[in-house]
Amino acid sequence: MRFARVPLVVAGVLALLYGAVWMPPDPVVHLVSGLTACVAVVALLGTGPRGRRLAPAAATVAGAASIALTATTFASRTPGDAETMTWFFLEAVALTALVYLAVLWGPRAGAAVAGIAPAIATSFLLFRFDSGEEGPGQIVGAAVWLVPAAIAAGAALYLRWLAAGRRRAVLDARREQRLDLANDLHDFVAHDISEIVAQAQAGRIVFGGDRPELAKLLERIETAGVRALGSMDRTLALLRDPGEAARAPVGGVDDLEALVERFNEGGGPQAVLALRLTGPVDRETGAVVHRTVTEALTNVRRHAPTAATVSIELTEVDGSLRLRVEDDGRDAPKPSFRDSSGLGLAGMAERAESLGGRFEAGPREPAGWRITLRLPLQDINEGAPL
Rank of each mutant, 00 (worst) to 15 (best):
G48P: 13
A173Q: 11
R52G: 14
I67K: 04
V144A: 15
A71G: 07
A164Y: 06
A142I: 04
D172R: 14
F207T: 02
A246N: 03
L214E: 09
A200M: 07
G362A: 13
A111H: 06
L8V: 05
Q177S: 13
V93E: 01
A173H: 13
L229C: 02
A62P: 06
I193R: 09
D327I: 06
A112N: 02
G344L: 06
I120K: 00
P24V: 02
S76R: 07
T278S: 15
A304I: 03
F74H: 09
A245H: 10
A97V: 08
D180Y: 12
A287P: 00
G230W: 06
A102C: 02
F207G: 04
Q138I: 02
R302I: 08
A4K: 10
L98M: 02
V189G: 01
R204W: 02
L171D: 08
L185A: 15
E195A: 15
A202E: 12
E360N: 06
F89M: 00
P107L: 02
G51P: 09
L162D: 11
V226P: 01
D318R: 05
A40P: 02
Q177L: 15
G12F: 03
D282G: 12
A224R: 13
L125S: 04
L377D: 03
R227M: 13
A271K: 06
I380T: 10
T235H: 13
G344E: 00
R302P: 01
D282N: 12
P335R: 01
G209H: 14
A245E: 11
G132A: 00
G362V: 09
W105T: 05
L277C: 09
R374A: 11
F89K: 01
R174L: 15
A169F: 08
G209I: 08
M348E: 06
S66F: 09
P366Y: 04
A114L: 00
A111Q: 04
T278E: 14
L54S: 14
R338I: 09
E91I: 01
V28H: 03
P305K: 05
L90S: 14
G319A: 07
V32E: 08
L159A: 13
P25S: 03
P27K: 03
T294W: 11
S320V: 08
L95W: 07
L95R: 03
I371P: 05
W105V: 05
P363M: 06
D130N: 10
A114R: 05
L275A: 03
R227I: 10
V61Y: 05
A163H: 12
V272Y: 07
R174T: 09
A82S: 06
I221Y: 08
A43P: 02
R53K: 10
A349G: 07
F207Q: 11
A349L: 11
G48I: 04
I116M: 03
T309D: 12
V310F: 10
T309W: 12
L69C: 09
A55P: 01
L239H: 01
Q201D: 14
A58G: 08
S33N: 03
L343D: 07
V39L: 15
M1A: 15
